[in-house]
């Protein structure tokens, strides 16, 4: 049976992991490669590296980092942040990333999804959507949630799929950072609407939230950052718990 995936997300700035980490006996907390290996050893199914650097110099550093991750980590990983055109995609895939995640660029230029799918295959193209629940609608936002758009979650996700997206990474801005669970109702609708995998993001605070994202939200994968980085939830413990709850996970 296809396992539900657990995906830690690492924010990287100038080659260093941004959010703090709290692992016992873990010395290189800031090193994204070491941290990725550590998550992989604990049983993470995939990794996401998000480049939050704004500068050109930082982009180069990130590409070098992607090469190191590809050399040392033996599970799939996705990279995102600052991908605006095909040459960014080409650079990151050539460096060894398995998938790229595009967000604002996909909304500004939806043809980018088609270009990626045509040149590298659908499986490479993750379309990330940041949406906020307002006036009974899930409105999509640009630039890390700062700029509202006239696109809405369900129709935009469907369009992205039709254009060739291989996966949808849906972050609920309404739930993100609140630690009270994922947006399960919206996830469930999204998962039923689409025939590509849906990754849940935003809202994880405890183990039960992951279970609910899979069982109530019908998500194919769940992404989280701080609960893993701060050691609040261990990936191995989480997977043991999920297995007991009847969720198929890779042990």
């Amino acid at each position: 049976m296809l396992a539900k995936r657990i995906i830690p997300c690492l924010d990287v700035k100038d080659g260093e992991t941004v959010k703090g980490v709290n692992f016992v006996n873990f010395r290189s907390a800031g090193d994204p490669v070491e941290l990725g290996k550590c998550y992989s050893d604990q049983g993470a199914d995939e990794l996401v590296y998000l480049d939050i650097t704004a500068s050109h110099e930082g982009r180069k550093t990130f590409t070098e980092l992607v090469k190191k991750v590809a050399a040392q980590v033996s599970i799939p990983f996705t990279v995102g942040g600052g991908i605006n055109e095909m040459k960014d995609v080409d650079r990151l895939l050539s460096a060894g990333a398995d998938k790229v995640s595009i967000n604002s660029a996909a909304i500004r230029n939806p043809n980018l999804i088609e270009d990626i799918a045509k040149n590298f295959g659908c499986q490479v193209c993750v379309v990330a959507i940041d949406a906020n629940f307002e006036a009974d609608m899930w409105r999509c936002y640009l630039n890390g949630g700062r700029v509202p758009t006239d696109k809405y979650l369900f129709s935009w996700a469907k369009e992205a799929q039709e254009r060739g997206a291989g996966e949808i990474l849906f972050t609920s801005m309404t739930h993100d950072g609140v630690k009270e669970g994922y947006a399960n109702e919206a996830l469930n609708r999204l998962s039923n609407d689409l025939n590509i995998p849906v990754i849940a993001s935003g809202g994880a605070g405890k183990r039960e939230h992951f279970r609910d994202a899979f069982i109530k939200g019908n998500a194919d994968a769940a992404l989280a950052a701080s609960v893993f980085h701060f050691g609040e939830i261990g990936i191995r413990d989480l997977k043991t718990y999920l297995a007991e709850e009847g969720v198929c996970v890779r042990m």
Binding site: A3, R5, C122, P197
Partner: peptide, 9 residues
């Protein structure tokens, strides 16, 4: 329903 078959099996 989902194709590609993507992930761990």
């Amino acid at each position: 329903r989902k194709v590609p078959h993507m992930g761990w099996n």
